[in-house]
Design a protein around this nucleic acid. Structure first.
Length: 153
DNA sequence: GCCAACGTTGGC
DNA sequence: GCCAACGTTGGC
C-alpha cells in the first residue's frame, strides 16, 4: 500500500512538537480527537508507517513545526472511558468506542516553523485541506504537497 | 477577545 | 427528519 501523508494539528501550549521531542523514545499517543471527520480519517485511513506534519495552532507562530511517523494505527482512545479526563465521553462504551487514538514518533523538528502565511502564498499548495477547511484536526496531505512543503524549510 | 465556519443536538 | 440553537475550532 502506498504510504499516506497527513497533517495533525496541536496546540503547542497544551501539547506540541517540543513535548513529543521530550518523550521517552520521542513517541507519544495522539489522542483527544473529538471531531467526527477527523475521527474517521484516523480510524479508517491512517496506517502504521504513514507520515504526518505536526501543525501548531492557537499560538504565536501558527504553522508546520516538523514531522512524525505513525508507529501504531488507530485503537480506542482510553481517555473517553475515564470520567476524570477532559476527554471523557459518557456515551462511549468499551464495546462501542467512539473515539480513537494513534501512536506517533518524532521524525524531524524543523529549524523554524513554516508559517501558515507562507503556505498560503504558494500556488502549488492552494488546494491543501488546511486552507480549504478551517477546523479539521486530522487531514490528508498529497505526496506533492508533502514534497512542496519540505522545499519551504 | 472577536467572529466566521461548521458540526452536533434536541424540540417539534 | 427538519432546522434553529448551541458549542467548538482557529485565524487574526
Amino acid at each position: 500500500m502506498a504510504r499516506g501523508y497527513w497533517l495533525l494539528k496541536s496546540e503547542p501550549d497544551v501539547y506540541g512538537i517540543e513535548h513529543l521531542a521530550g518523550e521517552p523514545k520521542q513517541t507519544a499517543r495522539w489522542d483527544g480527537i473529538r471531531n467526527y471527520q477527523a475521527r474517521n480519517f484516523l480510524r479508517d485511513q491512517v496506517h502504521e508507517g504513514d507520515r504526518a506534519f505536526i501543525y501548531h495552532s492557537q499560538c504565536k507562530t501558527v504553522g508546520i513545526a516538523g514531522t512524525a511517523r505513525v508507529v501504531k494505527a488507530a485503537y480506542p482512545d482510553p481517555a473517553q472511558f475515564n470520567p476524570d479526563s477532559p476527554y471523557y465521553d459518557p456515551k462511549a462504551t468499551e464495546d462501542k468506542p467512539r473515539w480513537f487514538a494513534i501512536d506517533i514518533a518524532l521524525d524531524e523538528v524543523f529549524d523554524a516553523v513554516i508559517p501558515l502565511k507562507r503556505i498560503k502564498q504558494q500556488a502549488a499548495l492552494e488546494d491543501m485541506v488546511l486552507l480549504k477547511q478551517g477546523r479539521l484536526s486530522v487531514q490528508p496531505v498529497t505526496p506533492e504537497e508533502w514534497k512542496e512543503i519540505h522545499r519551504l524549510r
